[in-house]
Amino acid sequence: MQKIIQDIESRYSVSEKEIRRNNLCFLTIPKNQAISLVTYLRDYQGYSAFTLLTAVDWIEEGHFQLTYLLNNPTNYTEIGVRTMIERDHATMESAHHLWESMQTYQRELKEMFGIDFPGSPRVDEDFILEGWTDIPPYRRDFDTKKYAEETYFPRPGRETNDPAEYMKSKLFPND
């Protein structure tokens, strides 16, 4: 793992690295180098299997973290390529040309986080949500509790009790 990290560091501007296990590490690199690194890992370092692409919303810092997780089916190691993109007008270069499965991940990120991947096939089609008009729901500023309270009507039989008080009233009603 150390050898390949050194190799990547000699070619790309790695700003942060985290070796989680002897078969898993995460590297942070600038946005404009991310797809290049992913392609390099796939074509020259044997990381031919793409595991996942997902986003983390760091709303306090004003950016999204994108993580591309790649797997090497020969030595069974994994590398997570992290890159930070601006939260406002979030856009990232598409990588659908590298793996067919990539377009589904990008389509989901467009819908759930509002991150655009221009040129990615079917990226604007609904994936999980249908007719969604609110802000992308996986962003941190989308409040699920508030949404549920405003959207769904209260149903009878849903009164909540404080568990300690309720048990006390049931088990020891005379105390």
Binding site: F127, I128, L129, E130, Y138, F142
Partner: peptide, 10 residues
């Protein structure tokens, strides 16, 4: 898909 979506991750 989406008939069963309850936003577990969120």
């Amino acid at each position: 898909v989406g008939y069963l979506h309850r936003g577990f991750e969120k």
